[in-house]
């Protein structure tokens, strides 16, 4: 029960994108389509889970004064591993996501969870937290990507459902801000309704 609670809180109550407002750059920069959003989410989730596990394992060895630099090194190591794997096995996705893959290092979600959760909890709970927050992030990115793809090119996950051109603006830069803004409004409305 408790395990499920940790995972669920990452998806809804502490959703990194809609509630915590963390990791905005990849959220806006990589969600031109549902697949790209999901890919970015998955890469971030992999780093998040691995770094959460390792940090919760070594938290007692690291002196608290140098903990942030140590966490960054751990995170950067995993980002490099994920980067090399993606370059080898998913070259197309790697090319589309471009600079945002090495930039997972500076995604505030990961350092935030390391400092806020993994440094205070056990290995198992930290892994679950990584899964929950990672899923929440992936879900948010996939939804934003799907909305932008649907409005911008009339397709979802590459399957066209309308012939002809979509509203190109939603695939371009301004669309990212607009779609995220309006989705946030929707999320606020829904959570406000649930509370009352």
């Amino acid at each position: 029960m408790n395990n499920l609670k940790i995972v669920l809180s990452g998806i809804v109550k502490n959703n990194p994108t809609f509630v915590l407002l963390l990791g905005m750059c990849p959220t806006l920069g990589t969600t031109t389509s549902a697949v790209n959003g999901a890919g970015m989410g998955a890469a971030t989730m992999a780093v998040l889970i691995l770094s959460n596990i390792v940090i919760s394992l070594v938290k007692n060895i690291i002196p608290s004064k140098v903990r942030i630099p140590s966490y960054i090194v751990i995170i950067a190591a995993f980002v490099t591993i994920v980067e090399l794997c993606m370059r080898a096995y998913l070259p197309d996705l790697y090319k589309t996501l471009g600079v945002f893959i090495p930039l997972i290092v500076v995604n505030c979600i990961i350092l935030g969870r390391a400092e806020g959760f993994a440094a205070k909890n056990g290995v198992w709970a930290s892994a679950l937290d990584g899964i929950g927050i990672g899923l929440g992030f992936t879900l948010a990115l996939t939804v934003i990507g799907a909305v932008r793809e649907a409005l911008g090119s009339g397709a979802i996950f590459g399957h066209r459902f309308i012939s002809g051109d979509g509203m190109l603006i939603f695939v371009l830069a301004p669309g990212a801000f607009l779609v995220l803004g309006y989705l946030m409004v929707l999320f606020n409305r829904l959570t406000a309704k649930m509370r009352s």
């Binding site: 301004p174 990212a176 801000f177 607009l178 995220l180 803004g181 406000a192």
Partner: peptide, 17 residues
């Protein structure tokens, strides 16, 4: 109310973009 804070900021940023 639902637009207050970040959502309206994002939409403004979109128009600026």
């Amino acid at each position: 109310r639902a637009f207050r804070g970040t959502p309206i900021a994002l939409i403004t940023a979109g128009i600026l973009a």
